[in-house]
Design a protein around this nucleic acid. Structure first.
Lengths: 203, 203
DNA sequence: TAACCTACCAAACACTTGTTAGGGAAGGAT
DNA sequence: ATCCTTCCCTAACAAGTGTTTGGTAGGTTA
């Protein structure tokens, strides 16, 4: 007799993704640790134990939410980076793509922002560290290319600039609401205008 | 016979603040919900129950940490706002003061960033909402004054700009380490240069 | 009709959580 | 020498935690 069947792997992915979406929203709203499986089950209209028909554990839900988000994020980023644009155009495209991802995966981004720092220590979530390295490399090299090409200022600390740009983009997930008065593209445009040209009036 | 004495109020504040500092650091590192009172006690070299000689509850520790931080923050802010500087100088002073507060209250700022959104719903932490309103008013009015005086660009959404500036400043607490290679003033200078003049090279 | 699979419920499990009650050692005050 | 205060420990508590086990209604397949 083989091992027990694992509906987690083969079951219809429709209900599964539905449950992951509600779980992601509760995680984002209340925080991962403060979210009990009973709360998730409540939002899904079922009992706590029933979740374990679809998932191994609470932690595996979190992992799948973050993995799905990062996979899609890197699809977009790799496309941009592979286009071999100039440094300024690359930065514009990365920022715009980021705000689009926030629009699509608001909950996952919020979770990532809040929890990734603690999760990355666990080997189960080592893929977060890998993603962070790729992320830093992509942004830093773009900024450095821009400095070399004299389209970005050379008197600013590149690493510091990277941190500011990175944080401001992603922290937008904490206040962004899809369907609001600003589209992701409009937010990206305003943000880029601020970061590239500054908010001070030019003489 | 009067009610039991409450050492929480009258006890020597030295040990009390010491414990709050270690608690703040554990809260900042692991997150409030993920931090057990036993972990705090471990870091303080005592047992969990002993904490309750000094404090009413885990929640009251959190409240005191945030209250202490916000009190000091507004001391600095009110001084700046009372100086009646021009809009650009006010913005510069607010940013610099913010980075100094991050330097002094790194842990508290990190906690505030992570938890305030969920805490503000509880009436016990209503003072967080009040602080946020004051904060928004101070920044928005400064930005609007700058636009009116034509020192800040008028084609940017003020509210959006406010959010970007606010978030980028405070999120720095997540990567800032006191004693690092950049002083708070140096970080403020670079940040202001980026926000005011942009990172693009001027023609 | 019978066998089976899917998706859930009901009830319990072992464990961790914040918190409390009683006690005691150390040291200063009387 | 006695008392009192400070500060911590020991031991337990009730509630809440993630998870497991066995069962079952309803649809699908043989």
């Amino acid at each position: 007799m083989p091992t027990k069947k694992k509906p987690q792997v083969t079951a219809t992915p429709a209900r599964r993704r539905e449950l992951l979406d509600t779980a992601a929203e509760v995680f984002a709203e209340q925080g991962y640790n403060a979210t009990t499986v009973r709360k998730i089950a409540d939002h899904a209209g079922m009992l706590a134990g029933s979740l374990y028909y679809h998932f191994d554990s609470k932690e595996s839900m979190l992992e799948e939410i973050l993995r799905t988000f990062l996979d899609e994020l890197w699809d977009g980023y790799d496309t941009v980076l592979g286009a071999e644009l100039g440094p300024r155009e690359t930065l514009e495209a990365l920022v715009t793509e980021s705000f689009r991802e926030i629009d699509r995966h608001r909950a996952a981004v919020a979770i990532y922002q809040k929890e990734s720092k603690q999760l990355v220590a666990q080997e189960r979530f080592a893929f977060l560290a890998e993603s962070q390295r790729k992320f830093e490399k992509a942004w830093l090299s773009t900024l450095e290319r821009g400095v070399a090409a004299e389209v970005f200022r050379s008197d600013l600390d590149v690493r510091l600039t990277y941190r500011f740009v990175r944080d401001t983009v992603w922290v937008a997930a904490s206040w962004y609401r899809p369907g609001g008065q600003h589209s992701p593209e409009e937010i990206a445009r305003q943000y880029l205008s601020m970061v590239l040209d500054g908010i001070a009036v030019r003489e």
